[in-house]
Amino acid sequence: MRILVVDDDVHIRQLIALQLQQGGYEALLAQDAQQALELLETEEVAAAIVDVMMPGMDGYELTQTLTDDLDIPVILVTAKGQLTDKAKGFESGSEDYLVKPFEPQELLFRLQAILRRYGKAMRHHLSVGNIQLDRSSYDVVIGDETLIIPLKEFELLAILSATPGHTISRIRMLEEVWGEDDEKHELSLNTHMNRLRDRLKKHGASVEIQTVRGVGYRLEVLR
């Protein structure tokens, strides 16, 4: 997958490119908005990472063009962490906002989230018993409490919540959440399921995860 990187600092450009390559992406580099738009006449990208402060057309303007005209999701990168800038960023249509200095892992994490979110027709909201799952923000709401849990656990809970009362096999869970059905993840699945159970109980959820021996798991609504 190709990602456009626009930044006037050559080192940052290269750095982000290297980080993207390590994350399995291909990077397309531009030093300013002008060059970026020229490149996009012939090239296609899945998302763009844009620096706010650039000579010529600034990051906000470029973001507006990218999101409105070309339908490319944008992550804005800046040293300014201030609220007004953030608001300006979201106004111009950026999907996310990253403040310098950031960790490369964080950039990849956010990029993944955006790509997953963008253009994918998925049911964003799931509701079972007194819990609601928001697949775009990865929040679990139980009653008046919002819970943020590790991603893997969220995904497991989302799979179970999509079909409450139905048993989901361990194999399917491993495939969907870990991407492969491998024995080395078996233990991990158990641990995550146990933690998830504890969390649901502790925060007063009206659902319970039941183990179906030898098959998998099932989400039951408590009465």
């Binding site: 960790e103 964080e106 008046d144 943020i148 991603l151």
Partner: peptide, 14 residues
């Protein structure tokens, strides 16, 4: 989010 995920933290908001 990312930092919570990194440390596998559970965060509850009320």
């Amino acid at each position: 989010r990312y930092r919570f995920e990194e440390n596998q933290l559970e965060v509850s908001l009320k």
